[in-house]
Amino acid sequence: MSAVLQAEGLGKKYGKRWALSGCTLDIPEGRIVGLVGPNGAGKTTLLNLAVGQIEPSAGSIRVLGGSPASGPEQLAKVGYVAQDTPTYAGLSIAEHLKLGARLNPGWDGALARERIERLGLDPAHRAGKLSGGQRAQLALTLGIAKRPELLILDEPVAALDPLARREFLQGLMEAAVENSLSVVLSSHLVSDLERMCDYLIVLVKSRVQVAGDVDELLAAHHRLTGPRRDAATLPADQHVVSESHTDRQSTFIVRTDGPIHDPAWTVGRIGLEDLVLAYMTPAPTRPTLEAIR
């Protein structure tokens, strides 16, 4: 299977601050990829690098085998719905579709018109007068109708109410299936992505914490609950993602490919939300642990 997005040591620096660093990814084709992380983690930076809005300060990135935004062909292959779903406030919906038709050789006018009709939008309506949900739908329509191979969306539902959120994601899923699109979608909420993603990237503090197939990730992560003990005493193949302790009990979220034999543990599976939260919560520092004893 060929890769949709390959990054090698990718980094982007703004002034002295690294907004993204040491990012190595290999996302296979045909996936719905969820990019999760808290605000300011570097999600937008990564996506802007992927569509070529910005250039990397370190490392390299290839999208669908090409350098991002390197030319019209590359731009045509990648659809982008940017943060806050920008549209031209002064232009009508019909004019947005005309814009898409004029600027994209692969434009699917029938698809675009049909989507606008299905959404119940009036083509003569100015984009500036649309609700947030309608504007997001318009931006999505522009992204889909250019017939890309990969569609990238940066927090498209962040500003939407729950109903508009669900409608948007539903529309996105349908389009992804109908057009066999690869999709990369970012959000700071796992719940948005849980139902649709089959590949997950967790980005915290400008670094990729974990990336992989959702099913494989869920199979490899376990919640271990048992009598209190130190993380260092766990077997070497069990990588501790997060830990929490009470006076007598310890809870670890570990990642391991092997089975867990220790009978002292109650082993539980974890959901996607817990998994992401485990990576987002900073592990307690050792000195604090020592102090408790």
């Binding site: 569509v51 809005q53 935004a69 019209p72 731009l75 940017a82 600027l103 931006a139």
Partner: peptide
């Protein structure tokens, strides 16, 4: 200011053009 450069720069036309 309106963020529309992100929209238009990702149509199938280079920024230069």
């Amino acid at each position: 200011e309106s963020g529309t450069h992100r929209l238009v720069w990702n149509q199938s036309i280079t920024r230069t053009r």
